[in-house]
Design a protein around this nucleic acid. Sequence first.
DNA 1: GTCAACACTTTGTCCTGACATAAACGACGG
DNA 2: CCGTCGTTTATGTCAGGACAAAGTGTTGAC
Lengths: 251, 251
Amino acid sequence: MDRSGPTGLVPEVGLDRTSPVPLYFQVASRMQQLIESGVLPVGGRLENEVELAERLGVSRPTIRRAVQYLVERGVLVRKRGVGTQIVHPKVRRPVELSSLYDDLAKSGQKPRTQVRTLEVRHAPDHVAEALGLDENAQVTWMERLRFADGEPLAIMQNAVPVDVLPLRCEDLEGRGLYELLRAAGYAPRMATQVVGARVATAAEASVLEDVRGAPLLTMTRTAWDASGRGVEYGSHIYRASRYAFELTLST
Amino acid sequence: MDRSGPTGLVPEVGLDRTSPVPLYFQVASRMQQLIESGVLPVGGRLENEVELAERLGVSRPTIRRAVQYLVERGVLVRKRGVGTQIVHPKVRRPVELSSLYDDLAKSGQKPRTQVRTLEVRHAPDHVAEALGLDENAQVTWMERLRFADGEPLAIMQNAVPVDVLPLRCEDLEGRGLYELLRAAGYAPRMATQVVGARVATAAEASVLEDVRGAPLLTMTRTAWDASGRGVEYGSHIYRASRYAFELTLST
DNA sequence: GTCAACACTTTGTCCTGACATAAACGACGG
DNA sequence: CCGTCGTTTATGTCAGGACAAAGTGTTGAC
C-alpha cells in the first residue's frame, strides 16, 4: 500500500451548527458531493479520521459516523491500520426499492396504466399468508395493464391491505403503486420476489397483443415496510420481448 | 401506544470482557438469539437504552451500537420518543449474496456441475467493460452445465479475472463459484443482474434435454467485492420449467 | 367537554478521552 | 539477501456525560 499520504484532501467545508440537519449528515453529504464531482478521486485515500475531525472542527465520533454512513452505502471502504478509500461508483447500494412504473419513467419511456379491476374483497388464502394477514382480512384487489410507449407490456395483479391505503382508479392511472405507498407512509423497505418464465396462453397473448407461445416473464412479490408490516402482494406477467428485470443485489 | 412498559426484558446475560469479540456484538448476538428463540416476543418493546445499559453493565453507546446493528439487519425498529420494537421475522435482510449452487444445496437438491470449457483468454469487450478491466486483461472463462437431481438445469458462462483466483476443474465440480470466491477473500458484496426470458434454440434444447421453443430464463450478472473490484461476470440460461429466481430486495 | 400547554419518556446527536489492534514500514540481525 | 521484530499509523472499541427533539399522556383553562 502506498504510504505517500492521502490522495484527496477534504476542503474545510462550511458546517451549519444551527441547522436541524445533523452534523454527521452534513459531513457525509459534503463528502459524497466531493466524491461524485470528482474532487476526491476514485480509489484515492482519505485523510485519517483524527486530522479530518480537527480540520472540520468536529469530534472524531462525528467523523466516524459520517464515514460509516458512506461505508454502508458502498461509497467508502475502511481498512484498519490502512485508511479509508473511495470505491468505484459502480458499486453503490440503491437507495430505494424500484417498481416498474419508476423504472419506466426513469428510462424515458412513457408509462400508461389501464385499470381493469379495482375492488375491495377478502384476501385469497395465499395472499393473506404472504402478507401475514388474518384469514378474513380485506384487501384492495386490482388488475392493471401497463403500457410503455403505447405498447402493452405487462399484466399486473396486486393486493394491498385496505387499512394501509385507500386506492382510487385515477390515482393508479397517473402514478405507480409504490409511489402511492411511499406517499402514505408505508414505503416498501424489503421484498421477496420469485421470477420465472413460461409461454403465453391464448388469452394472455390477446391482451398483450402478442402471439400464443411467446415467452413471458412471471413475477410474484411480497413487500414489507420498515416495521415489518406486509403492504403489497403482486403477481405480474411481462412480455419478455419488451422487458427484462434489472436489479441490484447487495449484502 | 401502550405505556405499560416493555413487553420483553433482556435477561442479564454473561458478557465476556476478555473475549476478542466486541462487546456490542456480544450484546447484539445475544439479543438476536433471544428474539429468535421467542423469549422476546415479536412486536414487543425493548427496555429503554439507559436501563438496558445499566442492567447489562455496559455504556449506552455500546447498547446503541448493538441495537443499531440489529436495526440495520431489519430485526428491530426504533422510534424516537417511543422505544425500540421487534419486527416480524419475515423481514430480515439476507446476510450474503446467494448463488445457484448454494440455493440448490440449501433446498436439499443435489447440485452437480459438468465443466464444458475452462480456459484463460482475453476478456471480451462487454465483459471487460462490465468488470471494469483493461482491454487486454486476462480472464478465466468457463462454461458449465449444472444439474439438479440428475437433470440438466442451466448452462452457465462465467468470467473471473485471472489475478483474482486460479480456477481448476476439480474445484468447480465440487463447489460453487461463489464459495470459491469467498474462500479466496473476494466475497461478492454487490451485483447487478438482468433477468429476462426467451425460448430455447434447438442447440440449447438439446443440451438441456428439453424441446425447442421451451421457455428459458436468462440472466446476466456482474458482481463486485467490498472494495469495488469486479470479481465475476456471468451469462446464464435456465430451464424455466425447473427453476425460478427467488430473491430478496431491500433498501 | 374540548383543546391547548406542559411534563415526561425515549431515542438522537455530539463531545472528550482513553486504550486496543491490524497493517505496513523499516531497522536489525542472521 | 531475507526473515524477524519493533515502530508507526490508522481504524476499532468503549466509557461517561450533556443536551436536543419527537411522541405520548396529562393537566388545566376556557
